[in-house]
Amino acid sequence: MDQIPIFTLGEVLLVSIQVDLEDQLAMRLQEDLSERIVATGARAVIIDISALDIVDSFIGRMLSTIASISRVLDAETVVVGMRPAVAITLVELGLSLKGVRTALTVEHGLRMLNGTPSLALGGPREAGYGDGDGYGDADSTGDSPAPDAGSRAALPRPVSD
């Protein structure tokens, strides 16, 4: 494999990293993503790292750089699916993903981008809970206002150093 596939989900680009990242591959992804953001006019990028069993400083820097480039191109970046062991290691390593927003899963990431309340859908008596189909939810609320609307934007993100 010499390229990581990028999927288009409406106005969101979805990257799911499924291989042990070589440095060259990581650089290539960075370039590919910038081109695709411009070509598609995407407003957000979701990077799913749930398959990664480590994130070292190089991959961490790649994620931060992608977020910075996206911001310049008027798109938001959400990194989703970081494993607990990876998160604990990153904290110990002293690495904070500067400027990167995070979410538990792709579904949570889409909700965050759409400004959909993160608990409301999950409330005990709310209709539509539990279908687990984040993509459907995202489509049905696709006409939401700006991506960072909603109260989540006010929540603290990973501390920057």
Partner: peptide, 13 residues
């Protein structure tokens, strides 16, 4: 504190 920061990296508050 580290737990809180790790949780944020995973996307939880």
């Amino acid at each position: 504190l580290k737990t809180v920061v790790a949780a944020r990296l995973m996307g939880a508050d």
